[in-house]
Each structure stands twice: as C-alpha cells, then as structure tokens.
C-alpha cells in the first residue's frame, strides 16, 4: 500500500481511525447510545417526579394501544390514524405540486435553473417556526384568504382560517414541498429523452408517452420524494400545534407532550419507536429504489 511512504494496511487504517475517532465517538456517544437507551427506556416506567424506574414492563405499549387507567380509549388510535392520513394527504399534495415544478425547473435555461432552485431551497432552509408564523399571519381574519373563505361561507366572517385541519394540510404541504422538488428535479434532469422521443416516434398518445416513457423513469425520484415528505410529516408538532389546535394531534405532538410537559420519557420513547419503525421502512425503500438520487 502506498501513501507517501510505503505503509502496511494496518498502519494506514490506524491513521484513518485517528482521523475519524473524534467524529464517530461523538456520534456514538450522543446519538447511537441514546438511541439504544431510548429503545430500552420504552420498556421502563417512571415515578411521580418523572424519574425513570428501571423495571421492565410492556405498560407503555399497552397504553399506546389505548389501554389506559380509565379503560380503553380510542384517542391514540385516532392520533395514529390521523397521522398516517394527514401525512398521506400532505405527501399527495406536496409530490403532486412538486412533480410539475421539477419539470418546469429542468426545462428552464441553466441560469434560470439556479434561480428557481435557490427559490426552492430558501424556504427549506428557513426556520420552521418562522414559516409557521408566516402562515398564521397569512391566514389571519383580515387577509384575503380568510375573507375569501368567509365569502364562500366556509368560515364565519371575522374568524381566522386556523385552527383548522385545512391550515395544517397547507402548512405541512408547503414545508414538505422543497423536499419533494429536489429529488424529483435531480431525477428529471437526468431523464433519457431519447426514450420519450422513441415513444413519440412510435405514435404513442400523450398519455401513453407519459405513463410508459416518462413516469417509469421518474420512479426513483418519486419514491425518495414520498419518503422525504411522508416520514417528517408524521413527526411534525409545530405546525399542528399552531395551525391545528389542541384536538388535532399527530404522533409528533404526542411525543412532544411526553418529553415536554408530561415528563413521561418511557411512554414518549415507546411512541418514538413507532415512528422509528416507520422511518426504517422508508429508509429500506430508499436504499432499494433511490440510489441514484443525491440531495446535496
């Protein structure tokens, strides 16, 4: 092995280890280890002060399924179903809007492309709280959206468009939109148009060209877009908290409640595991389908 001097593989790996030691150690200490502990803690309980009691129990998961002190309740069930539903709708809206946007950006001139991409990236990098705040402002009673909705009779005049499930969908979709546009754009930019032309050459109709020559080629980008939209939407609590009100909770709110005000870390951990399983599922799909897509 050659590295400026002839070195053995072992010495080389020794040097590499010294380079990565600090970073890997940091990640192990502050992320991997706590992650493992989180799984363990999910099977523990807590005392009145919120301290963890180290004795194994499946109580948290029973509670998760709705078996509380006051008997069975459907609240958690509703939260999970709502999370999946809301995340699904968000994904549909965000990806649906992102798909034409990606084509639109890819079709513009190289100079403009930079501008459009920056325009997509800026909101993505803008703090979520700021964007939620901005939605609150935009949906407040005196501004056109609310007035228009009132005119349509959807809300009472003089009321804001939030708290309202619709506001949550809009907020979540706008948050997720850049995460859907970017993978789709990278995909569309590398599209093999020769296939499309071949299809057109063979007198395929517009719809046939789309479904048989364009859509299959964008599947990797689509799957990444779906994952990057769906999973974060489940774990969101800022938008639902601000735009959805207290009776429109998602999994994210449940977790935040346990780690925050309720100080029930074991129960919160159990909820986290559900979300982790979802994420892993997404990651598995990503590894299988989205290898060609880079985000940075």
């Amino acid at each position: 092995m050659w590295y400026g001097h002839w070195v053995s593989r072992r010495r080389l790996l020794g040097r590499a280890t010294s380079l990565i030691a600090s970073g890997i150690l940091w990640l192990l200490l502050f992320l991997v280890l706590p992650g493992v502990v989180l799984v363990v803690v999910a099977f523990m309980s807590r005392d009145a002060d919120g301290q963890i009691v180290w004795s194994a129990t499946t109580e948290n998961f029973r509670r998760l399924l709705g078996f509380g002190i006051l008997g069975w309740s459907a609240d958690n069930g509703w939260i999970f179903l709502r999370s999946l539903w809301v995340a699904g709708v968000t994904t549909l809206v965000a990806v649906g809007l992102a798909y034409p946007t990606a084509f639109f950006i890819a079709a513009s001139s190289p100079r403009l492309r930079y501008v459009w991409l920056s325009l997509v990236v800026v909101p993505m990098c803008t703090n979520l709280v700021v964007r939620t705040y901005a939605w609150e402002l935009l949906l407040s009673p005196q501004l056109p959206p609310s007035m228009f909705a009132a005119w349509l009779g959807l809300i009472e005049p003089g009321r804001a468009l939030y708290p309202n499930p619709g506001a949550v969908y809009v907020g979540l979709a706008s948050t997720a939109l850049p995460f859907a546009v970017l993978p789709l754009y990278t995909n569309v930019e590398r599209l093999d148009w020769a296939i499309v032309e071949a299809a057109e050459d063979l007198y395929a109709s517009r719809t046939r060209v789309f479904f048989q020559a364009i859509l299959p080629q964008t599947l990797p980008g689509l799957s990444v877009a779906v994952i990057l939209t769906f999973v974060p939407a489940c774990g969101m609590f800022v938008i639902t908290d601000r735009l959805g009100g207290s009776n429109f909770w998602l999994v994210g709110n449940l977790i935040q409640q346990q780690f925050g005000p309720s100080r029930d870390i074991p129960y919160g951990s159990a909820v986290c595991i559900v979300l982790i399983v979802l994420t892993l599922l997404g990651l598995y799909l990503y590894r299988r389908r989205g290898k060609a897509i880079e985000l940075v």
Binding site: L29, F30, L31, L33, P34, G35, V37, L38, V41, V231, P232, C234, G235, M236, F237, G252, I255, Q256, F259, I265, G268, S269, C272, L275, I276, T279
Partner: peptide, 13 residues
C-alpha cells in the same frame, strides 16, 4: 433521523 426522534434521543443523552 426525523428531528423529533433526534431530539428525543438528545433528551435521553
């Protein structure tokens, strides 16, 4: 990692 799970891991850490 979704940021809420990341944050939960931080609390535990």
């Amino acid at each position: 990692t979704p940021d809420i799970i990341f944050a939960a891991a931080m609390v535990i850490a």
